[in-house]
Design a protein around this nucleic acid. Structure first.
Lengths: 180, 180
DNA sequence: TCGAGCAACTTGACACTGTAAAGTTCAGCT
DNA sequence: AGCTGAACTTTACAGTGTCAAGTTGCTCGA
């Protein structure tokens, strides 16, 4: 996790982990099938934190359905901004398995959390899958755009500044129509 | 481009390109500063195709603003499905420069195309940046979910099948509220 | 008690990667 | 004829994943 935080996903190497743990370069191979398996394990660890970020955001927000909807999106974006390396690790695997993999604890998976919040907006014309996808696509796309610097000044001054979060509330206003 | 299509972004190596061109392994270094520069150049090439995919989709659809909106999203998703390696190359660079970089031709950049389509939905309460971001975030997030297999069966049978596109129309219905 | 078994780890090797520095080739120009 | 510069080659080195074999040390059962 230190390697990931300090150097991003590309810093997650088998030999790097071995050095960090002060063991021989081939030791990690006994615990992980290959590099992909190691990164998968790390991504799962990141996912626990992501999961918690969503739950915390809901906890700290209002209890009305529209407020919960806003909160979970807020938590999603906050995580992408505050834990960029973790965010990358989760979504750089080209798969969404972690979203549904049970973590053994009693806490719900991120997808279950999302589904629960979305359930209040399911109607005759709009099934659950559609609502969940609408919300997920919008907040994930938005977070990705922020992560890629969509709202950053291209000046030299703001070189290492944290990414600007952009017009979050205005964009999320699109979801208010779900309550109609 | 062949390497990219056949083996994905990770197949884009300096030595691989050299072999493909039947030159010595260090030859590409004279044309590109480093590996990142080579991939950047490839991504720019992919972006030309992406650009065209959006324009084609608009061309082949209706001319009403809402139809154009639907068309450009359709083109975005189609590209992600039909040219997954190109799609990855464009968005695996962690930057959005290609979206705005002029390609020298008279054709507009993808962002200009998006902005034009969105301009019909700008109101007193909703500025251009907001509308563009709403549309972009939704379709990009959706495409990314499709790309990551959100709507795929997890059976062995559908191992190498093309990804299912999911409830595209239903999800894009969220944008119809922009016309209110 | 003791030895088989086993997991964690080490050691050494190999192929592949990016990168650097120096040398080569050769077309085109003065 | 000689120079120049670009494209390319050659050689070398460090870092990477991966494999195969050996080592260590512990547990557990006879």
């Amino acid at each position: 996790m230190e390697l990931l935080t300090e150097g991003g996903v590309s810093a997650l190497t088998l030999r790097g982990c071995a050095a960090k743990a002060q063991v021989s370069h081939a030791a990690p191979k006994h615990h992980f099938k290959d590099l992909a398996a190691l990164r998968e394990a790390v991504a799962l660890e990141c996912f626990v934190a992501f999961n918690q970020s969503l739950l915390d955001a809901i906890e700290n927000g209002g209890s009305a359905p529209t407020e919960q909807l806003h909160s979970i999106c807020r938590g999603y974006l906050d995580f992408a901004i505050k834990q960029p390396a973790y965010f990358d690790a989760i979504f750089s695997m080209g798969s969404l398995v972690s979203f549904s993999t049970d973590l053994g604890e009693q806490s719900p998976t991120a997808y279950e959390t999302l589904a629960k919040v979305c359930s209040h907006f399911v109607t005759k014309e709009r099934d659950a899958l559609t609502v969940e996808t609408q919300v997920w696509a919008l907040i994930h796309g938005y977070s990705q755009l922020v992560r890629m610097g969509r709202f950053n000044e291209h000046t030299e001054a703001a070189r290492d500044a944290p990414p600007s979060e952009g017009p979050f509330d205005q964009v999320m206003a699109l979801l208010q129509h779900l309550a109609d």
